[in-house]
């Protein structure tokens, strides 16, 4: 069994020279999680700023709270918009191409010398 102190680092290597910790079976997931979580935070910050704007607009009498919260004027257009958004978000999961080309995974590691 490893000593509990094996993970202790006692040299002054800079942070950028140390690889980030890995928690998932595939380290790619760790990195994608990082991207996603940054986006989630950005989304919340924007949400907060929109709310600030809305509150201010209502307070100044530029718009009414009822008008802000009213249903879309064109229900069908709203559905089309939601569908486009959902497709853009989820299409990558299908794993198919958008322009014709080679398929699958490739490696340049094997075969004759290049």
């Amino acid at each position: 069994m490893k000593s509990p102190r094996d993970y202790v680092i006692e040299n002054n290597e800079p942070a950028t020279m140390r690889s980030e910790q890995i928690f998932f079976d595939d380290p790619a997931v760790d990195r994608v999680m990082g991207v996603l979580f940054s986006l989630a935070q950005e989304h919340y910050v924007l949400h907060d700023r929109v709310r600030a704007l809305e509150e201010l607009l209502v307070e100044k009498g530029v718009v009414s709270a009822e008008a802000l919260n009213a249903p879309p004027r064109d229900e069908a257009a709203a559905h089309r918009d939601a569908a486009e958004f959902a497709e853009a978000l989820l299409r990558p999961i299908l794993g198919v191409q958008t322009a014709k080309g080679l398929t699958g995974r490739f490696s340049l590691a094997r075969g004759k010398a290049q």
Partner: peptide, 20 residues
């Protein structure tokens, strides 16, 4: 557990070194 561990480390990264 993989998510639990990831979040523990990365929430702290965000708190100190993230965009905000």
């Amino acid at each position: 557990y993989h998510f639990f561990a990831w979040f523990e480390r990365h929430l702290q990264i965000g708190k100190y070194a993230g965009r905000y």
